[in-house]
Write a protein that binds this DNA or RNA. Structure first.
Lengths: 189, 189
DNA sequence: CAGGATATGGAGATAATCTCCATTTGTCAA
DNA sequence: TTGACAAATGGAGATTATCTCCATATCCTG
């Protein structure tokens, strides 16, 4: 399928300039307010080049998002390897909130992408979800978490936190959701 | 402030035609895919008229959303008046899920609006939130729900359900989130 | 280093959004 | 009623954003 001969080095350079610029704008939360052609100017690149590398605004956002997701998945694996299952799960959920807190724009951009029904985002979502599923499964295994709730429900709660990032008491409420979910997950006596 | 002299009857008619058309498109989930000028043609109205009534696409969406929110708030009040606090809360959350299930497009559109950081949507959100806050407060009052979690957290979980509406197992997972939240809210023994 | 393959920038085609105003329609006082 | 004034209308076209195309520049391979 994707039998891509490797990019020429100049192409690679341009592509990275574009990604770096997008990354910045993304974190600043301006991603969807900026004229698309301006990404090109900002990155020191012609409009044609921008469109060849990323045919749509969403394609660009997805490329940025991809990096974020990979980092989060790594984090999940790392926690799972070093902590008891229940703590790993709790730790990961709290880390997710920290991450959204630190990357102002990420939350908003994620919500927009989510709403756009993009398929690549769904794929990234699935990777993240696999990580969450593993964490939950491990905790079910060792008996600290009930076994009748799907990991998908936990994902939804995370989505909600992301989607609502502009609320004034965001941080406190996000922590509240996590507490609620963790308590709800605890195995009933 | 808004010392609006009443609209002339023809203006009122056009405005309602526009709203009715938007409502349909909204529920069908095509709201953000349709050329804005086409709303005008669809509603049998000139572009100028459309823009006078609703200066932006978001303004139109918000107007539609407003109706939805009012209906949901009524529903909350009704439940609160006829059921014990805990059941009213549970019933309302489940009704919200039903509502999103029935209005395919609403969930997607809501997520998009949310992401756009609109202020009117925030206002509508606040109305909904007041309803939820009341339900939670009543349940705290009669001792069935813990008192250390803000209603905002419940709102976030609902947002999450809306934002994720395109997941294949949406309905089951949404019910899962609600279960999680309700269990998490139960007053610890 | 020559020749072919790749990639580039940016001018302008295409498409969407929004404005403007000559005309129509409703309102109300006489 | 009706005349006169205010409010509202539609849609042609100005404005702005998106995307395409290709003559030119750059890289790579033998």
């Amino acid at each position: 399928m994707t039998a891509n001969r490797p990019l020429r080095v100049d192409a690679q350079r341009k592509r990275e300039a574009l990604l770096a610029t997008a990354q910045e704008v993304f974190d600043a939360g301006d991603f969807f307010d900026l004229r698309f052609d301006d990404f090109a100017r900002l990155a020191g690149v012609g409009a044609g080049t921008l469109y060849r590398h990323f045919p749509t605004r969403e394609a660009l956002a997805e490329a940025v998002y991809h990096g974020e997701v990979a980092a989060l998945c790594d984090r999940a694996r790392q926690l799972q390897a070093t902590l008891p299952a229940a703590e790993a799960l709790a730790g990961f959920l709290r880390d997710m909130v920290d991450h959204m807190d630190a990357h102002q724009g990420l939350a908003r951009t994620l919500a927009t992408l989510m709403a756009s029904g993009s398929s690549t985002i769904a794929e990234g979502g699935r990777a993240l979800e696999r990580a969450v599923t593993d964490l939950v499964a491990a905790a079910v295994q060792d008996g600290t978490v009930r076994d009748d709730v799907d990991a998908g429900a936990v994902m939804m709660a995370l989505h909600g936190i992301g989607a609502a990032h502009d609320r004034p008491a965001w941080r406190a409420e996000a922590d509240g959701v996590i507490s609620l979910v963790l308590d709800g997950l605890r195995r009933p006596v």
